[in-house]
Design a protein around this nucleic acid. Structure first.
Lengths: 202, 202, 202, 202
DNA sequence: TATGAATGAGAATTCATTCAT
DNA sequence: GATGAATGAATTCTCATTCAT
């Protein structure tokens, strides 16, 4: 029986996950140390391990919690909606996530980059299932002549790639554009809107 | 005065860099160990450090050597060529690099993801210069009505994002598509061609 | 002034000692952890330390309580009884203890093996006194020609060694005999009876 | 291909095993620390791990090396020899081992006491085989009326128990006898000789 | 009494790097 | 050039014990 978390447990667990997100997303799993996380969470190292049994466990908790949230925007793609608008809406939601939750994006990217040793199965299972389902929807739209004929799977990849790029390659984007705030996200939004409008309209 | 490298030096240096590319690209800088690299290179650890003064030095050499090669495709974008074809050609060349040199792509992605601590300046300098220059070319094409009006910088980002995605997120792509060879790269090529044809044609 | 123990104190103290016996006898002092003991006793770790001030204290209590019980069979050696029967009776009682209280035997063996750091003095004091006393009795029997002339001290050692062997080396005995229950104790009893009958009878 | 050990390797490996024997036999596996072993071997802790991959590996090497030596005396039991002399010879050889190699005896005892987690299989295999073989020999002697009828397996156990007792329970023996040198081993030898002479002679 | 929370002092192991030959 | 040997500085994790309630 899982006990309900006490106030303190709640607070510390949250602090640890927040700290871990910060550290793991920046240094990767191996690059992160419990010292860094403990410091960022304002706890002692052993106290950290009182809440999570190992470094690995923290990472895993983070990744598990992430997967769902990460796929939410795709889930909301509505088969009954206006096809072009639906897709463009998805693009914008994903872009907002890159702007608002860049660390989550990088945590995920780090994991995939290293071969997804810890979530490999999840990719082939739940993720594939969801993507296949939505790809079928898109294919339906194509067959109905409502959007241009583009491979649905690769279309989805393109959305992931382009939106997550603004989180994962943030430093590069900023250096090349020579900007520092979040203003360029508006440009990106405009660009992507125009881009997908043009390429999807039959 | 730098001595010319002997045959054996040449051979070992190459072996080390090849091994380091393999290891760094898979595990990241911190995740990689000299032991792994030495083993992959067929050398002893001390011998490795005879050729490169430190782990850091190997990594740096790798990144430096990479930057140039990595930008070559963009450099060949020809202001005098047919705009749509030039851009589509660039896309294909980049995609081929993702297929043929995925480890280089991942090495680079790892570095950027972690905030580019080792090549930060390079991004704002040579890279920005080149991108700005090519963005101007593209803007010229837009102003001349030869391609659709899309923000040139973000257009370039889109190309990087979409093509490198096939290298950096390789595991995910394969799991979602349920494939194992390189066949999906042909699909990607076709998708990207259609995608950019549609969005760029005025 | 020591308060009489309440019902609950009595119960918990007993549970702790029982749990500690289980754990210490199997893993030794260093190998045992308070976590294991607490879990086995069904108490929380701090609560454990409410009853015993330290890990050491539990161990000590256990050893002290053991010493007395352990020597009881020897104490009952009756100078007025039939010599051979007395000794054989002692052997059987010790063997029964090995069968019925193997954990106690192992706890003791662990302690002695490691140099008896915690009961060293007890060995030279009360134990030596008792053994010397009984050795005198045996020597009396020998001098009276009632049993064969065998060094009394070593005779006692032999009894300890042979009977405790069935508890302390239990795993080995079982593996060699290829048995699992307690049936071999009957064989051992028979063997020892024959063995001592033969060697003691003048 | 196993390389032949260099002089230094030979020296350090030996020093480590000697140190480990000292420490493990006194404190048991869990109670021993690499620090203690390293100090006793005159090496740094990491250097220790340069020769053996883990604490466990040192322990295992020690136990494996021990098993053979430990059973040698039993192997030399000669079916063609004089039965009583053969057994008494075996007893004396075992007793000498307890005197000369008490640490090995205690290392072994520690392992068995804790359930033989690391050599469990060895007990049921090679050991059982050898014991069964020798038990058959002894049974043959009994059937031929050359020695008294005593269960051969338990007879062997008795020899192990009694001789090893002088190594494993050394502290206790010394405290009870009030001795410090090795003089009491002569008494033990005499006692055991008389003891087995009496009990074995038909 | 009882327990959730916290921690300092280890303990094993890893790893980049240096040393000696 | 090459490598066996060695190590200091981490790094993860354990554990007896204490604190606060």
């Amino acid at each position: 029986m899982t006990q309900p978390l006490t106030r303190i447990q709640q607070k510390n667990t949250t602090a640890i996950l927040e700290a871990a997100l910060e550290v793991f997303s920046q240094h990767g799993f191996r690059g992160a140390t419990l010292d860094q996380i403990a410091k960022a969470a304002g706890l002692s190292k052993p106290n950290l391990l009182y809440y999570f049994s190992s470094k690995e466990a923290i990472h895993e908790t983070l990744l598990n919690g992430l997967m769902d949230t990460w796929l939410d925007p795709l889930r909301t793609l509505n088969p009954q909606g206006n096809p072009v608008d639906e897709i463009k809406g998805y693009v914008q939601r994903k872009l907002e996530m890159s702007r608002d939750y860049p660390r989550q994006s990088r945590l995920f990217a780090n994991e995939i980059l290293q071969g997804a040793p810890r979530i490999h199965d999840g990719l082939g299972g739940p993720l594939k299932t969801l993507v296949d389902e939505k790809a079928t929807v898109i294919q339906g739209w194509i067959d109905a002549g409502k959007i241009a004929p583009l491979d649905p799977h690769h279309l989805i990849f393109s959305i992931w790639a382009m939106t997550q790029h603004y989180a994962d390659f943030d430093v590069q984007v900023r250096q090349v554009l020579g900007v520092s705030g979040d203003a360029h996200f508006a440009q990106a939004a405009e660009f992507l809107d125009a881009f997908y409008t043009k390429s999807l309209t039959p």
